[in-house]
């Protein structure tokens, strides 16, 4: 039964902007993009070099694969670390709360590149110590340092996403599940997390996109990810198209992730649509 006080559903037509003939500014702006796109194509065609392509295409793909691995491993490791941090942030004990707050502030308040340098160059100062505890093999390698730094960094962001998403589920859901006799773990698994997942989906995939972009920084400590291979290719050929190809690949990954998110969100919220 529809309540008479409810606003009428389709009394006002949806805000569809009228299609008007483009004005001067629009033509100018779109023309500039068209010109930029055409000159990019012309540049790539003029700089077309089959030898270069044959030589570097497999290298770029392996760099791309390194980037994907780096992001995937760090994302999962960061997700594991983020659980205790998120629990600490919501905890009543002030030691846990202050420690996890300090962790989040430290990693979100400073540049990732500085964190990476502290771990890669700074930990080298304690080589003797790491050798005695048998971890020097780990911190000597740029690859492991990159994973370590990226995982710690994303854990701080993921902890905030997790905390916010769980807090967004109304308290009555916990109480209702309790009155049905569900255990805390079952409540979390079957009642809270499915609802939190809808809230968290977009921030999580945003975080993956931010990680893809941030992971490019590890090229500075000689990890040969996509940007690392690009830098190496540029330093050998001095051909600027090396950077253009990297940009195209990065844009492809990010756009793919963005569209996948939109699709997943439509699927997850299809019961909410009218």
């Amino acid at each position: 039964m529809k309540n008479a006080l409810d606003p009428p559903l389709a009394a006002t037509p949806p805000d569809v902007l009228p299609r008007r003939r483009p004005g001067f500014a629009g033509v100018l702006a779109l023309g500039a993009w068209l010109l930029a796109g055409l000159s990019l194509v012309a540049y790539l065609a003029a700089a077309w070099n089959p030898d270069l392509l044959a030589r570097y295409a497999p290298i770029y793909l392996s760099g791309l694969w390194t980037t994907i691995q780096l992001v995937a491993i760090s994302f999962v490791a960061g997700a594991l670390i983020s659980v205790p941090v998120a629990l600490g942030r919501g905890s009543k004990g002030f030691v846990q709360r202050d420690l996890s707050t300090a962790y989040v502030v430290l990693f979100r308040g400073t540049p990732f590149i500085a964190q990476l340098f502290l771990i890669y160059y700074g930990f080298g100062q304690f080589r003797d110590f790491f050798e005695t505890i048998g971890l020097w093999g780990f911190f000597r390698e740029p690859w492991y340092c990159a994973i370590f730094a990226l995982a710690l960094n994303t854990a701080a962001y993921q902890a905030e996403i997790l905390r916010g998403a769980v807090a967004s589920v109304p308290k009555g859901q916990w109480e209702g599940a309790k009155s049905l006799g569900l255990s805390r773990l079952t409540t979390l698994r079957k009642v809270i997390l499915p609802q939190a997942a809808i809230v968290a989906l977009r921030p999580y995939t945003n975080e993956v996109i931010l990680m893809v972009k941030a992971s490019a920084i590890v090229a500075i400590i000689t990890v040969y990810d996509l940007l690392g291979e690009t830098r190496r290719a540029y330093s050998r050929t001095f051909d600027f198209q090396t950077y253009i190809w990297a940009a195209i690949l990065y844009l492809l990954i990010v756009e793919l992730l963005r569209h996948a998110t939109n699709f997943a969100e439509r699927r997850l919220t299809r019961h909410l649509r009218r």
Partner: peptide, 18 residues
């Protein structure tokens, strides 16, 4: 629409690139 499209292209490129 030409202005809207141009602004969207700009955002897509510079938000997506590292």
């Amino acid at each position: 629409w030409a202005l809207r499209l141009s602004a969207d292209i700009y955002t897509t490129i510079f938000r997506g690139l590292p």
